[in-house]
């Protein structure tokens, strides 16, 4: 099936592309500026004692884990989302669990064939619909209802939530990662390295080592996986986290 468009239709599509590109870039940039300004505003409006060195160190430790994703995720999602969708997706997040499924449902609802203009429009409209639900649920259910729930909770419960939220997230996420990535060898290596670094190396070395314990786990695991990687086992699923 080959669809042909008239010159008038091409002009309309060009207008759509122009508007979504310009406004997509602008809104993503503004979102980036406000979100990034927040911690700096906290820093300059309170008397908290945090140095630039501490911030840079913390950021480097985090980037050691996610640095590859900053580049790989935009490249991976581009063929799925197109230019307009990229500026929506990387502002809103929740790409794989919320936005892409919404776009697919919408395309099948109106019977738009993949790769057509209609499919691109349907995806944009669907992601916009998803964005409205996303923002509304956060504002009403987390911002208003959630804040109220936390305020009436007895301190004994919020205290437990604060102290034990981390292990309660990590146990589940670890299992989810293992099940999703299906990389038996990398899983075994990463757990072995973690046990070795956290339980054996860190307690017996200066405090500096413990500051970078996660970065050390990451570098060691990636190095071992990379150098033991055979040419034939490269059918792994690519890892995406957004």
């Amino acid at each position: 099936m080959k669809t042909t468009y008239s010159a008038d239709q091409d002009a309309l599509f060009a207008a759509y592309t122009r508007t979504t590109n310009t406004w997509g870039r602008l809104t993503l940039f503004v979102g980036f500026v406000i979100a990034t300004a927040i911690p700096f505003i906290v820093m300059f409006t309170t008397d908290l004692d945090v140095t630039a060195g501490q911030i840079i160190t913390a950021f480097i430790a985090v980037a050691a884990v996610y640095g590859a994703f900053y580049v790989i995720e935009p490249i991976t999602y581009y063929p799925i989302l197109g230019t307009a969708g990229m500026y929506q997706a990387f502002l809103i997040g929740n790409i794989a669990n919320k936005l892409v499924p919404s776009a697919i449902v919408a395309q099948s609802t109106i019977g738009a064939k993949p790769g057509t203009r209609k499919a691109a429009y349907a995806a944009t409209a669907a992601i916009s619909g998803a964005a409205v639900v996303h923002v509304t649920s956060l504002l009403l259910l987390v911002g208003v209802l959630g804040t109220w729930i936390v305020s009436i909770m007895p301190p004994s419960i919020t205290e437990v939530a604060r102290v034990y939220i981390l292990p309660s997230i990590l146990g589940g996420v670890m299992v989810q990662l293992i099940a999703t990535l299906k990389q038996v060898k990398a899983t075994a290596i990463s757990i072995g390295v973690a046990l070795l670094v956290i339980l054996l190396l860190v307690p017996n070395t200066p405090k500096l080592v413990s500051s970078f314990q996660i970065a050390i786990c990451v570098v060691l695991t990636v190095a071992i996986v990379w150098f033991t990687h055979g040419a034939k086992d490269d059918d792994e699923d690519s890892a995406l986290i957004n």
């Binding site: 884990v65 292990p167 990389q183 990463s190 956290i198 339980l199 786990c217 695991t221 990636v222």
Partner: peptide, 29 residues
């Protein structure tokens, strides 16, 4: 768009597994 697919799969997956394995093991003691 033509980055080595093995590279795309191995490094981020390894980094993610290692980070969460490290964070999880760190909770246990």
């Amino acid at each position: 768009a033509h980055v080595n697919p093995a590279l795309m799969a191995i490094i981020p997956a390894g980094a993610l597994l290692a980070a969460f394995a490290g964070l999880t093991v760190n909770e246990l003691p």
